[in-house]
Amino acid sequence: MKVLHINAGLENGGGLSHIINLLTEAKLSGQDFELLTLAEGPVDKAAREAGITTYCLGAQSRYDLASLKKLTAFINEHHYDLVHTHGARANLFLSLIHHKLQAKWCITVHSDPYLDFAGRGFLGKIFTKLNLRALKKADCVFAVTQRFAKLITDQVGVKPERVHVIYNGIFFHDDSEIPAKYEHMYFNIVNVARTEKIKGQELLLKALKKIDDSHIRLYIAGDGSQLEPLKALARQFDLSPQVTFHGFMTQKQLKNLYRRMNLAVLTSYSESFPLVLLEASDNQIPILSTDVGDIHMMIPDDQHGFIAKTGDVDSIASQLKKAIAMPTAELEAMGVREKKYVASHFSIKNQLTEILKVYRNLLK
């Protein structure tokens, strides 16, 4: 079974991790998976560094439809059995040529397709419709949460038998591989997310203002259009001494930052199945999230983490207070307990096994 995964190539967050982790595990398992990016960028760079067979189409712009003929020829001449797209641009390109392909076509929906182009005006509405149309044309759709699966069947109109829920996974490390924690005098919180409105960092800043505890330190690791407005909001709330904006951080930099964190927090308005929380948990950091995606699958009860109401500053502040008030040993035990749980349920090996089952059924 020869499989080609396709992505625009410009991902630089959870989408990139999802693709690289999956293809790395496929390589370790002896699967014939390859990657094609539409343009050069972080994805093909990371894939090559991981030793994944990678090609670049060399599209000249974000919507270089002139390259469709080249893409069609590439897929057919390499005799792929199945093509698997990730992201709205890759979905769009495949939707325009799928009738010319010999391969079956799968899509992974990483985010809410109705929000992918939110705030981009008239063009955003057009691209949203094109992406939704692509979902209905594909032979199979992978949804990374039950909520997305329901949305895809009930609102987009994809036939239920074509939709499969497979949760994201990561490579978990043995506890002996996790660096020892640094001693520190504050209660340190980390938020790893793009600084975009959908990630809700302004809610986190408002919750900190509400708590009014000078013992708290917040570290925001992420870049985006809201970085400067968030810095201005921190100044407005007189929180600047307590909040550090790191911008984008590499995995190596994050691992070092995790060594002095007490809690990892995600206050998004919408998420799929956030890899950043799995990664924090891998480092034995307790996690707090708003009630997004299928977060209850990741945090099954209050012994494994904290869940706040989405978009609710009071709820976020309340859950933060619970974590801060918890004795250090008890909070650390929660982090250990959560890692054991997620490592047994959401490994990248489990994810690949489930995807391969669907592939094989599709090719029968």
Rank of each mutant, 00 (worst) to 15 (best):
residue 80 Y to E: 09
residue 256 N to Y: 05
residue 56 C to R: 07
residue 206 K to N: 12
residue 40 E to A: 07
residue 48 R to Q: 14
residue 171 F to Q: 13
residue 7 N to P: 00
residue 54 T to A: 02
residue 32 D to E: 14
residue 271 E to D: 08
residue 67 S to E: 09
residue 273 F to H: 10
residue 174 D to N: 14
residue 341 Y to G: 08
residue 289 S to Y: 00
residue 118 A to H: 15
residue 141 V to G: 03
residue 49 E to S: 14
residue 336 V to S: 06
residue 208 L to P: 01
residue 180 A to I: 07
residue 132 L to A: 03
residue 327 P to N: 06
residue 117 F to L: 02
residue 90 A to M: 06
residue 151 L to Y: 03
residue 209 K to S: 12
residue 125 K to E: 14
residue 225 S to C: 04
residue 177 E to H: 14
residue 244 T to H: 08
residue 283 N to L: 01
residue 337 R to K: 15
residue 152 I to F: 15
residue 61 S to D: 06
residue 228 E to Q: 14
residue 269 Y to E: 02
residue 49 E to Y: 00
residue 361 N to Q: 13
residue 353 T to P: 01
residue 295 I to M: 10
residue 177 E to V: 04
residue 258 Y to L: 02
residue 45 K to G: 02
residue 149 A to E: 08
residue 181 K to Y: 03
residue 164 H to N: 13
residue 242 Q to N: 09
residue 99 H to G: 02
residue 199 K to T: 09
residue 48 R to E: 11
residue 93 F to G: 13
residue 201 Q to F: 15
residue 337 R to G: 04
residue 214 S to E: 13
residue 292 V to D: 04
residue 86 H to T: 10
residue 104 K to W: 01
residue 45 K to L: 11
residue 28 L to T: 11
residue 16 L to A: 04
residue 354 E to G: 03
residue 95 S to I: 11
residue 138 A to D: 08
residue 232 A to E: 14
residue 58 G to Y: 14
residue 119 G to F: 04
residue 126 I to P: 09
